[in-house]
């Protein structure tokens, strides 16, 4: 099993998953993306110690890992709170009113784009095309799509729901 010294650690069980992922590819570094997802699930966000840890697991220069992580909007490099709202602002979604969704979210949350609420419950970011242009405008909350006839009202309701009940079924709020 891969063993390295680091201030952060995967559990035994996750290290087994890591090894399985690495074994799937020709070179260890090919397993970078799935392992980053794994690390994000485990540690909440990808801090420099986590990135260094991943780099050492894959025997890659840390710089390469920082480079890849910064390229993708789906990776979080700082604490983004419990619920991370990601509103797509690419061409289709913008044409279909993404900006109104952003305004609604800013209003309800009291933080701007890239902001995190003080109670660490919510954060708001805009992201590039989520690959769901046919349902534009779309938004993603953590790993869930919210993509049904979304409008400002629904965004506000969704935030309210999350804040009050601590959770929601996304289908319900958007129906």
């Amino acid at each position: 099993m891969t063993e390295v010294s680091s201030p952060v650690h995967f559990s035994e069980q996750m290290l087994e998953t890591v090894d399985r992922l690495i074994a799937k590819y020709e070179k260890p570094e090919c397993a970078l993306l799935p392992i980053l997802h794994l690390a994000q699930d485990q540690f909440g966000h990808l801090s420099p110690p986590v990135l260094n840890y991943v780099a050492s697991l894959l025997k890659m220069p840390p710089g390469k890992v920082f480079d890849v992580v910064s390229f993708y909007t789906m990776f979080k490099t700082r604490d983004m709170g419990k619920w991370c709202l990601q509103i797509c602002h690419n061409v289709t979604c913008t044409m279909m009113g993404a900006e109104r969704l952003v305004h609604a979210a800013v209003e309800s949350l009291g933080v701007g784009v890239n902001g995190v609420t003080e109670d660490k419950q919510f954060s708001l970011v805009t992201v590039e095309c989520l690959g769901s242009c046919d349902k534009a405008p779309v938004m993603q909350v953590n790993n869930e799509f919210v993509e049904r006839a979304l409008d400002a009202e629904k965004v506000k309701n969704l935030i309210k729901d999350l804040r009050e009940k601590g959770q929601t079924t996304f289908e319900e709020v958007t129906r």
Binding site: P48, P61, P62, G63, K64, F66, D67, S70, F71
Partner: peptide, 19 residues
């Protein structure tokens, strides 16, 4: 030594030392 990397994307791409 791999200190230098280009982070981010598109017109926000930026050269820096990774740490």
């Amino acid at each position: 030594t791999d200190e230098l990397v280009i982070v981010n994307r598109g017109n926000r791409s930026e050269l820096k030392t990774y740490d």
